[in-house]
Design a protein around this nucleic acid. Structure first.
Lengths: 110, 110
DNA sequence: AATACCGCTATCTTTTAGGATACTTACTGC
DNA sequence: GCAGTAAGTATCCTAAAAGATAGCGGTATT
């Protein structure tokens, strides 16, 4: 049983790393933590992500219920991406990641 | 300034995800959180990782001072991999990852 | 001497992620 | 009606990650 538990944990770790891993997903989420954003705003924010990749990442995150996409009804074309409640629950996790990252840099460089 | 801060955070997130990200690294670390292990023990633990990949991941983690490798002097060939102090500092983070992962599965499936 | 396990390394192939670039549709303002 | 911006799609290409498979040097086991 102990072993089964462990297997589940490993699966959890892999799941989560799948979600926030990769070159961009974590960054997209982190950027949306700040506030909701539009497509091109995100694009600028992330520096040199290509639209193709950004689209894919956003779709993936939507599928995983972390991000919601809403078209603003009236006015010009404008789509808002924001974190869902579930997505927001990642916030403390990302906070810890950032904190550890800063510590890590010191350890490796120092 | 606010924006610069944000840039730094994004870099941190990406750094960390580089380390614990990918298909296997997080799982290797999580498995070692439990206790120190030998090569084949890790291999069995992780299910279907190939030796080639496991070797590479372990080397990477060693380089980043997260894992230490020690050959047991006497007796049969036996190598112990364990977390360094720095590696252990990842423990709470991994704990949170597991916790969030479990919650996430419920949200996505439920 | 034969078998078997440990800790790998080597080679080869497949899969995947992601970049580059161009194009499209829809609306706004002039 | 033309340019500009937003929000993407479509197509093609490359590099890197990881899988499959085989083998090797050592030890210990019988």
């Amino acid at each position: 049983m102990r072993n089964k538990q462990k297997q589940i944990q490993l699966r959890d770790v892999q799941d989560v790393l799948d979600i926030i891993g990769g070159r961009w997903r974590g960054a997209v989420l982190a950027s949306l933590c700040d506030k909701e954003k539009r497509f091109n705003e995100l694009k600028r924010d992330l520096g040199n992500i290509t639209p193709r990749t950004l689209t894919k990442e956003l779709k993936y995150l939507e599928m995983n219920k972390l991000v919601s996409r809403e078209v603003e009804a009236s006015g010009g074309a404008s789509v808002l991406y924001s974190l869902t409640t579930h997505g927001k629950s990642l916030n403390p996790l990302i906070g810890q990641i950032v904190a550890w990252g800063q510590k890590h840099r010191k350890v490796v460089l120092g």
